[in-house]
Amino acid sequence: MDYLKAFLVGGAFCLIAQIFIDKTAVTGARILVSYVVAGVALTGIGAYKYVVDFGGAGATVPIVGFGYTLAEATKAAVDEKGLLGALTGGLSGTSAGIAAAVVFAFIWALIFKSRQK
């Protein structure tokens, strides 16, 4: 059941993005930026938590989930440190993901070479 929900919720996020890409020729970068900001906003108004409770990984694995993590961590940091938390929260909460992307990308660049398919 977990899997079905994750599949449906995660798939739906991708489906919506695909419709935008096909219909409006909007670039991938704009889609990702919009999704992250939407994730922060939806978490801010308290709606995204329900999506996460329902969809599990289907809600956290899409880039919207990155926005969710940013917002949740910011909220916790503000609760703890006050206004300073608005600056420290987001990146602290997502540090593992960003650091992993940077560290791994560097390693891949060491190992691999660009190729034409």
Partner: peptide, 15 residues
């Protein structure tokens, strides 16, 4: 897009 995106999320769920 729906199928592949959904499958990646399922992999996430399994992990």
């Amino acid at each position: 897009a729906f199928a592949v995106g959904g499958l990646i999320c399922c992999l996430g769920q399994a992990l």
